[in-house]
């Protein structure tokens, strides 16, 4: 029995998480709609995501879906319950490189970090990876270094 997750998304009515996957035995594409119960507008998204990931009926299908993605989908569902438009909800995950993240409240900051996690997880080397090196050292050739535009005279305050 094998499932290869392809895409996932949400459905607002009733609140559900939708998973598109390939059934590896038959090579057929399937859609699974997982209703999200006991989840309300003040529920904690990371707890709910964890509960779903470990759910005995669904965990086989969700094995390849990272926890932070399930958490993000729960946030989108919850935003909808709180009356936020889908557009605004998704926009809140976007990263603006010029935004001062020091000013954000915990919840907003967690969203931004959640967004950063996609790249972090993709580039991450784990201890059980065959080419993992604990004290990886890389020297960068300083002779080819160019001046960084962040140091331009206009902002000489640094």
């Amino acid at each position: 029995m094998g499932f290869q997750a392809k895409r996932c998304g949400v459905q607002f009515n009733p609140p559900s998480i939708v998973l598109v996957y390939i059934h590896t035995d038959t090579n057929k594409i399937r859609k699974r709609i997982i209703p999200i119960r006991n989840f309300f507008k003040h529920s904690d998204c990371s707890t709910a995501a964890e509960r779903l990931k470990n759910h005995p009926r669904h965990r086989g299908y969700l094995d390849q879906v990272p926890l932070h993605q399930l958490e993000k989908l729960h946030i989108v569902l919850r935003d909808h319950m709180q009356g936020l438009s889908l557009e605004n909800s998704l926009a809140s995950f976007q990263l603006d490189p010029d935004e001062d993240l020091n000013k954000l409240e915990d919840e907003e900051l967690a969203r931004k970090k959640g967004q950063m996690d996609t790249l972090f997880e993709r580039n991450r080397k784990r201890k059980d990876d065959p080419d993992f090196v604990y004290d990886l050292e890389v020297e960068f050739d300083k002779s080819k270094e160019e001046k960084c535009s962040w140091d331009e005279e206009s902002d000489e305050d640094i």
């Binding site: 790249l119 993992f132 270094e145």
Partner: peptide, 28 residues
């Protein structure tokens, strides 16, 4: 890593290019 960030040099501080994700130079 091809760019020089002058803040460290100006203050006379050691500078490291690192990545917490792939581990480059973190332990060093």
């Amino acid at each position: 890593t091809q760019r020089s960030f002058s803040f460290a040099k100006k203050q006379g501080l050691p500078f490291y290019f690192v990545s917490a994700a792939d581990g480059t130079n973190v332990v060093k």
